[in-house]
Amino acid sequence: MDTTNSTPPTNDDEKRIRELVARTQEAQIDPDVLPALHTSDLVLINLAGRRLFGRESFASAMAEALSSPLKDIRTVLEVNDIRFATPDVAIVSLTKTIHDERPEAEDSSELPLAGIMTYVMTRRGDDWRIALAQTTPIR
């Protein structure tokens, strides 16, 4: 990646990244908003290990999940660290806490209550988007 024309990261970049993380959490059940916060060539590995390629694939999987009991699972994200690989690429380390609000009849024992999440974000101008999202369950 040629970064010769890149602007060095600033405190505003860290603030924008934290705001993007907050928006992803707020939009976790909005299939119109959440995928748009990601790049078109996104790679996503979810808590169950399912890998998706591209924003359209993510949007389709999200719509499918929201039409199932998975719609009653909420997550809370906590930013632990932000590092800039280049001025336009940030690696964001997060802790994901899972709140399973499915009815008691569901067997939720398989679902971990926490995960370690990594976002790789890219910047174009002042606009940050998620290019990679990977979650590792904590058992």
Score class of each variant (00 low, 15 high):
Thr95Gly: 03
Asn80Ile: 08
Arg74Ala: 11
Leu37Val: 07
Ile116Asp: 05
Thr24Trp: 00
Glu101Ile: 06
Leu94His: 02
Ile91Ser: 05
Gly54Leu: 06
Arg123Asn: 09
Glu26Gln: 15
Trp128Asp: 04
Ile130Asp: 06
Arg124Gly: 09
Thr10Arg: 13
Ala114Trp: 00
Glu110Pro: 01
Glu64Met: 09
Ala105Trp: 10
Leu34Ile: 08
Ile45Trp: 01
Leu66Met: 07
Asp126Pro: 02
Ile29Pro: 01
Val43Cys: 12
Ala85Cys: 02
Arg129Asn: 08
Leu47Gln: 13
Gln134Cys: 07
Pro69Cys: 09
Asp30Arg: 04
His99Ile: 14
Gln25Asp: 09
Arg18Asn: 13
Asn5Lys: 14
Met1Tyr: 11
Asp12Phe: 04
Ser67Arg: 08
Arg102Phe: 09
Leu42Thr: 03
Arg123His: 09
Phe53Met: 14
Met117Cys: 06
Thr3Glu: 14
Ala61Cys: 01
Glu101Gly: 10
Val79Trp: 05
Glu104Gln: 14
Ala36Trp: 05
Ile45Gly: 02
Thr135Pro: 00
Asp88Phe: 03
Leu52Gly: 04
Asp107Ile: 09
Glu14Lys: 07
Ile116Leu: 07
Ala63Thr: 11
Arg102Trp: 10
Ala90Asp: 03
Asp13Phe: 08
Gly115Phe: 00
Ser109Ile: 03
Arg129His: 12
Gln134Ile: 06
Lys96Arg: 14
Ser57Leu: 01
Lys96Leu: 15
Glu104Val: 15
Ala63Asp: 05
Glu104Arg: 15
Arg123Val: 10
Met62Cys: 02
Lys71Ser: 15
Ile138Asp: 02
Val76Met: 13
Ser67Asp: 11
Leu94Trp: 03
Ile130Trp: 06
Glu19Gln: 11
Asp12Gln: 14
Ala85Ser: 08
Ile130Glu: 08
Met121Thr: 12
Leu111Cys: 12
